[in-house]
Each structure stands twice: as structure tokens, then as C-alpha cells.
Design a protein around this nucleic acid. Structure first.
Lengths: 220, 220
DNA sequence: GCCATAGGGATTGCATACAATATCCAGATT
DNA sequence: AATCTGGATATTGTATGCAATCCCTATGGC
């Protein structure tokens, strides 16, 4: 069952990280030839990787002109975060009654890892993964894999902006406190309180990002 | 503007129709070589088309074994339809207050076209498109393009089963009546009634599909 | 001076050809 | 008899090279 990974998948994974990490600003062109040299592969797996990223909403193809990183409007970002509120509170409602002590322990350990990473001053790249891992740990017991997949899509598509907001506003600590609170509410089966907190948690992030984007727009 | 369509896109569009139309039953292998001969292209655009369909959830790649059409479990189908209820009532709430007379006329004309197609005894292939066109006409004024895109994804992914249910249960006429009723409620701004009807409309379809699938399972 | 337009250059999109991997089945081994 | 091994075969995954398309610029007409 060797987890064989094609070169196309490897390129897609790495390129996704680079895009989400902010290496390519919105609208920049991704030339197949250059990427092929970067990864020391031919243009075929690069094309396939770009197609995958297109389906994830991270790049756009313009016929015979190449792939460009997408640039989301403020309105689109708000919309994506509203969708996250809708879907994530939906799964959380299903998940909380199903939470086992093992699930709670797992979520707790993710939080501790995250603390450790924070204290050691490690990079933000990792934080985003931890953040998703924590949310996923809470949602997984919902037993709704299709819904979780859509939530994952939303996270990927908006991931670049989440990181940006964290860099600019340093709200990591606040998010961290909210995570602890959320876990506690989940542990005690307070479904409605947890959903309310989650909603605020997501909406606050959206407002933070919108504020940053609008400031950038004005200065540009 | 450029109506240029790559061969990969052409193959993807056609193959999607064939899969949704039921030409390939669940789990059947799609060999690149055979498809390439079918479409008189090389395997490269075929591979790209298959990747696109993979991202839409219609096929799955098994490394070095090729692409297979996906087979959704009954649970997955129920989950997808529950998601449709959640997202479609969500956009409908936003759309109804924004509906212009032009929007209503457009939705009405879609329904009339659909009637005409029904009377002329034309194929079901077209019905699915009309169905989606009608729903889309109602939802578009919501001004939520990202959400509409996700709804489109859900429709694609479950499309094969929707057609199957229609073939088996001949519920087209019932759906048609509900569409007319839905349009009337929307016209009169009855948001809550419209959402309730829409919810039942979608859930009934889901139950019909689940019934057919479970019967097939038992006979297999 | 401004718009249309043709040719050069750059980049993509695709066909061909080859390399890599999984499956299958025969034969050996316990 | 059941399981393991290994090579043959089928199919995918990728490299290379070429043709098609678009952008850009320069030139000509008004």
C-alpha cells in the first residue's frame, strides 16, 4: 500500500504551500517552463498540478496565456467566510454529541502542540496547519465526510488570506484562547454556546482580513 | 471573447455528460488509451480531462491503475442532499428579496421550455439541464457567486443519481408542479414558505434515490 | 495624430515515444 | 492445499519535440 505520489501531486502540494504562503502575490503568472525547471520535471506534471490547483480555486487558466494566481475580492472573501460559518456550525452540531474522550484528547493534544510551536517561535506556515487540524479534530466525529471535504475546500481557497491576516494583526493568541474555550464547551456538550462562539471566531477573522485588504487597496 | 476550448476541456465536458448520463456504471474503469481513440486525441488531454473530473468527484485515480467512476454510498448521497438543502435555502433567502421582474420572467421561460420538452417527449438528458437552469435562475439574484459555485458542484456530483431516480420513479411531473409553486411563492416574496417547499422538494428527491439504490443493493 | 493590421517572438497545448509501476499467473516451496 | 516469488504484460506517468495560439510592436492607411 505504498503511498506512491506522482510528480504531479508532489508539485501540486508544494506549489499550493508556496501560493498559500504568499510567495506569489495575487494575479502573478505561473509559467510552466519556469516551474518545470524549478522542480526538475517536464511541463506535463506541472500542467497537471496547475489543473489541480485550478479546481481548488487557487489559480486560473487563460487560454494560451497561462495560469495566474487568483485574487479574491473582499466580497468573495466575506462570502467564503459566511459559508464557513454555515457549514462549520452545521457539522459542529452533529459532532458534539458524538465526541468521545479519545476525540477530546486528540483535539487537546493538537492544541498543546500548537502552544509548543508558538512558544518556540516557529513559523506561521505551521500555524495554519495546526489551526485546521484542531478544527478538523472537532468536526470529524460528525460522521459527515462530504461536508468536511467542502469545508476543507473553503479553507484552502481562503487560506492565503487567513495567513495574511495573522501576520498583520497578530491575532494568533486570541484565536488560541477561543480554541480552548471552544474545546471546553464541546466537552461539556454546550452545543448552542459552542456554535455561537465558533460563529464569532470565524466572523472576527473575516472582518480582520477585510480590514487589512481594504487598507491595502486604499494605499495602492 | 475567446470561445477557444482546449481538447482537454472538450473531452471533460463530453465525458462528464456520458458519466452523468449513466453510460458508465459505478466503479467502471476508464482507460486513457481507449478514450484517446474515442476522441481521436492523444492521452494527454484525456488525462487532463480525467483530472478535472476527479476534482468534481466523478472519478477517482488509483496510482498506475487508472481512473474509475466513483460510486457514492447511500449515506454519502443523503449527506450531499442535506448539504443542498442547507445551501440552497440559504441562497434562496438572499435571492427572493432581490428578484426583479426580468428574473422572474427568465425563470418562467425556463419552465415553459421545460414543459415543451416534456410534451415533445424529449430525452431526460435535457431535463437535468433545465432543472438546474431553473434553480439557478432563482438563485442567481442572491449575488453570492461562490455559494452558487458550490451548489453547482453538489449538483454535478449527485447528478448521476438524480437522473436515475427520474427514470425509475417518473417523478418529473411532481417536480414540475413544485417548480411552478416555488416560482409563485418567490414572486410573492413568501420567503419562509418557499424555503420550506424547497427543502421538501430536495429531500423527497433524496428519499426517492435512496429507495431505488437500496432496492438495487438488495437485488444485487 | 489615431486606429487597423500583419509579422515576430514567446508561451501554451498536444502528439509521440519511452520509462515506471501494478497486476496476473505460472511455478516453486512449506 | 495454501502461500510466496518472479517475470510477463498491460496500463499508467513523464520527457521531448512540434504545432497552434496569443501578445506585442512596427508599419501603413485615414
Amino acid at each position: 500500500m505504498a503511498t506512491f505520489k506522482t510528480r504531479a501531486q508532489y508539485v501540486a502540494d508544494d506549489l499550493r504551500e508556496r501560493i498559500l504562503g504568499g510567495e506569489f502575490k495575487g494575479g502573478s503568472q505561473l509559467r510552466q517552463d519556469a516551474l518545470a525547471r524549478d522542480y526538475d520535471v517536464s511541463r506535463i506534471p506541472v500542467r497537471e498540478a496547475l489543473l489541480t490547483l485550478e479546481s481548488e480555486g487557487l489559480v486560473e487558466f487563460h487560454a494560451h496565456r497561462g495560469a495566474f494566481t487568483t485574487e479574491l475580492s473582499v466580497a468573495a472573501i466575506r462570502e467564503l467566510f459566511d459559508l464557513r460559518v454555515l457549514l462549520e456550525t452545521y457539522v459542529l452540531r452533529y459532532a458534539i454529541p458524538n465526541l468521545t474522550t479519545a476525540d477530546l484528547d486528540h483535539a487537546g493534544s493538537v492544541l498543546r502542540q500548537y502552544d509548543a510551536a508558538l512558544d518556540s517561535g516557529s513559523q506561521i506556515d505551521n500555524w495554519s496547519d495546526y489551526n485546521f487540524a484542531f478544527h478538523h479534530a472537532l468536526y470529524a466525529p460528525s460522521g459527515l465526510p462530504e461536508t468536511l471535504a467542502m469545508i476543507g475546500q473553503l479553507n484552502t481557497k481562503s487560506g492565503r488570506y487567513i495567513r495574511m491576516q495573522l501576520v498583520y494583526t497578530r491575532e494568533i493568541e486570541k484565536a488560541e484562547l477561543e480554541h480552548r474555550e471552544l474545546l471546553e464547551l464541546a466537552r461539556n456538550g454546550k452545543v448552542e454556546d459552542a456554535c455561537r462562539l465558533l460563529e464569532r471566531h470565524i466572523k472576527d477573522a473575516a472582518e480582520g482580513i477585510a480590514a487589512v485588504l481594504e487598507k491595502n487597496l486604499r494605499s495602492a
